[in-house]
Amino acid sequence: MSALLAESLISSLNVDARIDDITKATGWLGALAEDEGWSQATRFALELSLEEALTNVVSYGFQDSTAVPRIRIECYRLPEGRVAVRLIDNGMAFDPTTISEPVVPASIEDAKIGGHGVQLMRNFLETLAYAREGDENHLTLIAGKPD
């Protein structure tokens, strides 16, 4: 993923690796959606994807890591009404784009209770891109492709 233009940065937020900060982050994004006038679909896609991505980072990213957690979220305005959210953390390397799509079960007995986060990000986003930069995961979420 090419570097996003610095001048298109709308806002950024640092959060701690704790569950309560996931809601803080989606609340921050919701306020940006109001200010920027995003469509309902764009807002939902980004809030959902940020919640899922950040849940993974907070729950697993620092499990076997001795690093002091640094988690930063940046939001960018892109051309043609698109919006990008970038999640940067210094947790263990994890590329969600390599997770395979779960098979839709034939019956409720076979249904997997968990593991739907990446599936949802793929479904709701136009682009889900990952890069490992030094000791950091950079996950880019892009939504808002005009209909």
Partner: peptide, 19 residues
């Protein structure tokens, strides 16, 4: 107005138990 995968988990756990 909003549901994430944690909500899917809640619904499926309940539905499995009922089934």
């Amino acid at each position: 107005p909003f549901m994430a995968s944690i909500g899917i988990r809640l619904l499926l756990t309940g539905a499995k138990g009922l089934r």
